[in-house]
């Protein structure tokens, strides 16, 4: 494995704080197992989220693509809602060693901005994206608020707090919010029956 290159890549990512992506070592000095962080792009259902990516580098990196999958649950046509597996050409047959961890993570960010439902990873999400876009958008937003936004700043937590203050229990509030895609008013109506 080209340790020199990986170290340079990590340094470069650390230096460029404006890019919206970040990489951390997962355990000590092990350069093969890394964690990436991708900021959800603005004006998308993913805005405000920080999406964790599991990165595994094989010995022949950069002559094979880095293995990447989302650790944070994402509702997206090109990401498995079960496993986090990603369908992105540059992580497969379109990889080039001139690409880097940074450019790959930026490509993930671009993928969040522009889903490719014609080449889906998650058929259910892709179908929803095409046939019921509004529900897709709401679900994606709900997942972002549930899994990708730290609880302290999460709008979802606020909504849950509002509903529980009215006397509903937390589990019921969460279930209702999920069912309606995070809309507080609709969730309340649902709970009130």
């Amino acid at each position: 494995m080209d340790i020199g290159r990986i170290n340079k890549e990590l340094k470069e990512i650390e230096r460029d704080t404006a890019s919206g992506v970040r990489v951390e070592l997962r355990n000590g000095s092990d350069l093969q197992h890394l964690t990436g962080f991708v900021q959800g792009p603005k004006d998308t259902p993913y805005e405000g989220g920080i999406f964790k990516v599991e990165i595994t580098l094989e010995n022949s990196y950069p002559f094979v693509p880095p293995k990447m999958k989302f650790l944070t649950k994402v509702w997206h046509p090109n990401v498995s809602s079960q496993s986090g597996a990603i369908c992105l050409d540059i992580l497969k047959d379109q990889w080039s060693p001139a690409l880097t961890l940074k450019t790959a993570l930026l490509s993930l960010q671009a993928l969040l901005s522009s889903p490719q439902p014609d080449d889906p990873q998650d058929a259910v999400v892709a179908k929803q994206f095409m046939s019921d876009h509004e529900t897709y958008r709401k679900t994606a937003r709900f997942w972002t608020e549930s899994f990708a936004i730290p609880p302290s700043q999460s709008a979802l937590e606020e909504k849950i707090a509002h509903i529980t203050e009215m006397g509903f229990d937390r589990a019921a509030a969460v279930a209702a919010l999920e069912a309606v895609g995070g809309d507080e008013q609709a969730a309340l109506e649902r709970l009130l029956g």
Binding site: S60, F63, V64, W95, S96, P97, A98
Partner: peptide
């Protein structure tokens, strides 16, 4: 050495311009 490894392992194209 890096380019030759690329041509052998990844594919026969320029890594940047393809």
């Amino acid at each position: 050495t890096a380019l030759l490894e690329h041509l052998k392992k990844v594919g026969r194209f320029d890594p940047i311009t393809r």
